[in-house]
């Protein structure tokens, strides 16, 4: 990267302003909610829900492609279908996690694989929008839909609002559900609301960024933050900051180096994690 390419990047701000806003907000909210996902040891819930969200989008394209549904096609909004399906998957996971009488990881794996297989099959059936589906899966989209500039921050705002109100309660039911039940806390309702916010945010951000970067932003910033600090509040703050930086730098490098955006964001988040490990190791070495 040289100065001229950086200058070009600044000059063409009208191209990257909207995707950067959406990316940064997605990084912040995924980083925040990802702390719960990592602490509750349900990391692959992020992968499963983003895959279900992709399946919802692919399904909407597929239904819209039928001539029999041509009048319906214009009414089927891929975003709405993906949101409903992801919210249903999150609800099912929250309420019926013992449904299969298998481990939690097993149920998540089942959901992930079913959605992934279905996305590939549907992608194979529809040729016209195959490129759009690939964008959704891997986040290669360089531009975002103008309405997402409003939808993503609005969803992030409401999620944060809910989490500000119930912060202590979400932490309590995540850390010690047995005592929460003894204290007559509505453990099941709180878990459902928590997972619903995760599901809705993942559906919305997957539509904007793609499944891969959303999974990356949900897992890697919280992991890095947990490496760097022993304070729970600081873990949330650091995770949000790392999420924003990963999305911003990922988009920047993708822009000037012509890299796929989703992969660039994910790699930036992974590099922050590696830097976090090195930082901690050096700190331990200095202390000893």
């Amino acid at each position: 990267m040289d100065i001229s390419s950086f200058g070009e990047f600044i000059k063409s701000y009208f191209l990257w302003r909207d995707p950067m806003i959406v990316g940064a907000v997605s990084g912040a909210i995924c980083g925040f909610l990802g702390v719960y996902v990592v602490l509750r040891r349900i990391v692959f819930v992020g992968a499963m829900l983003s895959q279900v969200s992709s399946f919802g989008v692919a399904l909407a394209f597929y239904i819209g492609g039928f001539s029999a549904f041509s009048s319906l096609g214009s009414m089927i909004d891929p975003f709405a279908i993906s949101l409903i399906m992801t919210a249903l998957a999150a609800l099912f996971f929250a309420l019926k996690k013992d449904f299969f009488r298998i481990s939690q990881e097993g149920a998540i794996g089942f959901g992930y694989l079913l959605a992934s297989g279905a996305v590939v099959i549907i992608g194979n059936l529809i040729t016209h929008e195959a490129h759009d589906i690939a964008d959704i899966l891997f986040g290669s989209a360089v531009v975002v839909d103008p309405k997402e500039v409003y939808i993503v921050p609005a969803v992030a705002f409401f999620s944060i609002l809910i989490h500000c109100i119930f912060f202590k309660d979400f932490i309590f039911v995540s850390f010690d559900p047995e005592t929460a039940q003894l204290f007559k806390y509505p453990v099941r309702i709180l878990n459902t609301v928590l997972l619903l916010t995760v599901g809705i945010v993942i559906a919305v951000t997957t539509r904007a960024l793609g499944a891969l970067p959303v999974f990356g932003l949900t897992v890697l910033p919280p992991l890095t933050a947990l490496f760097l600090t022993e304070s729970l509040n600081r873990v949330f703050i650091l995770s949000v900051l790392i999420g924003v930086l990963s999305a911003g730098l990922g988009y920047f490098f993708s822009f000037i180096l012509s890299l796929p955006t989703g992969a660039s964001i994910t790699t930036c988040a992974a590099l922050f994690f590696l830097i976090g490990i090195c930082w901690r190791e050096i700190k331990l070495l200095v202390l000893t």
Partner: peptide
């Protein structure tokens, strides 16, 4: 029984025992 992945301080942990007297949604 507690999962050590949670970075909870001793005072935060003790405060959770107080939650029986703090309703849901109140800090």
């Amino acid at each position: 029984k507690f999962d050590h992945i949670f970075p909870i301080s001793v005072s935060e942990f003790v405060a959770m025992g107080r939650y029986i007297r703090i309703p849901v949604g109140r800090g």
